[in-house]
Design a protein around this nucleic acid. Sequence first.
DNA 1: CGTCATTTTGAAGACTGTCAACGCGCGTGG
DNA 2: CCACGCGCGTTGACAGTCTTCAAAATGACG
Lengths: 235, 235
Amino acid sequence: MLVQAKQASTVTRFVFPAPRAHAPRAVVCKQENSFSASLELMGTKFPYVRNEEIYGQGESSEYLYKIISGSVRTYKLLDDGRRQIGAFYLPGDVFGLESGAEHRFSAEAISDAVVIAVKRSTLNALSQSDPVIARELWQITARELDHVHDLMVLLGRSNARERVAAFLMKMAKDTHSAVEIELPMSRQDIADYLGLTIETISRTLSCMERDAIIALPSSRKILLRNRVALRKLNS
Amino acid sequence: MLVQAKQASTVTRFVFPAPRAHAPRAVVCKQENSFSASLELMGTKFPYVRNEEIYGQGESSEYLYKIISGSVRTYKLLDDGRRQIGAFYLPGDVFGLESGAEHRFSAEAISDAVVIAVKRSTLNALSQSDPVIARELWQITARELDHVHDLMVLLGRSNARERVAAFLMKMAKDTHSAVEIELPMSRQDIADYLGLTIETISRTLSCMERDAIIALPSSRKILLRNRVALRKLNS
DNA sequence: CGTCATTTTGAAGACTGTCAACGCGCGTGG
DNA sequence: CCACGCGCGTTGACAGTCTTCAAAATGACG
């Protein structure tokens, strides 16, 4: 089924996306509080190329990650190749915080990305003495839970149109853009996130364009033209 | 296929390891640690009748709950009546811990139930000074996250048979029963949990009974007759 | 024993998946 | 410079799974 397009054939592993990495996009990061900021001081920067694995399902979870640039997907693979993406992470987001000793999801760079990795042992030690740190760690997990709860309703009780609409609204919010969304991920990623197929994603987007709800100037760029209609698809 | 057929022919109907069925198995409750135990001392017991609301979507989340007896469902309602159940909670389980100030789910008693309610303000205060409490609160949230992650894969990437199989395996584990499962919830609850309809639930169960994977002595009681086949439906 | 809720079963239909073909953009190399 | 291949996305036709609508069976309870 899902052919895993592991084009890790891009042999340029570990190449720094140097020139464009910190482009002055003046992006307002979502979770910018003192804790999130201090993570950057505690950790080490690591660059990843497109589709490179950051950690794998089953590996011990030693680090907490914060994205500096690029984007990341976490996912779970079923043994027959089916894939469910748990979340997309954008610059400023924190990921990799799981309860157990092992990762229950894998994480990959969607595009070339730079992340800061902080040792969990360090954080655990800090949280022992500092309730603020402990609370922050908890809050990150709790926000994650909120997100998955929303996705759950989507996957369990929504049709294709509603799922895509919800995805677009969320992306607009996450990228702080009013009308123009730049998608870092492929149609396959969106499909595996929304529990659909690429064909359904493509068809639904085309249909929304015909209905003048969105515009598709290119496959990775989407313009929201009728937010009211989009919101009406959410509940 | 082969396995199912073979087992079917060797099965003696309804024979199960009688001597140890309800033997004093020293039932170990799931979350029975000192923290969970101390919750009972901090809180107050409340009884709820079947289908009574414990809290509602949007209400401020003032309490953390632990189930003494009975069972509870949490769910989200869409405005057109569609319902997604987030989780079922059994005796010993803790629920109601959400990150924000407001509940994003509603909670109801499935059957008559007794729960202990602990003020969140109390817990928050305690966790400020006691890192162990803080960690426990975090762990409860993290376990919740793990569960929802599993459900997410189910809802996004599994067919009806796989969903029902996963549900049965989970219920068997949660109720600490090897072969006989007593369901506290209705078909409608199961359907709204698995993102299906009652008809599909019923049909799938009937089909599994025909395949000698389970037996249905009554609608609320299910016997697991072929765990291998069930497990094969999980991935 | 009758009533009501719940569950099961059946038949038809809708939505999404599957399979296949085509288009598009882009880098490579003749 | 342009043909070609490749990855990705789009579109179409058809099939399959699950839902919907309807009705019969089962079971709990007065």
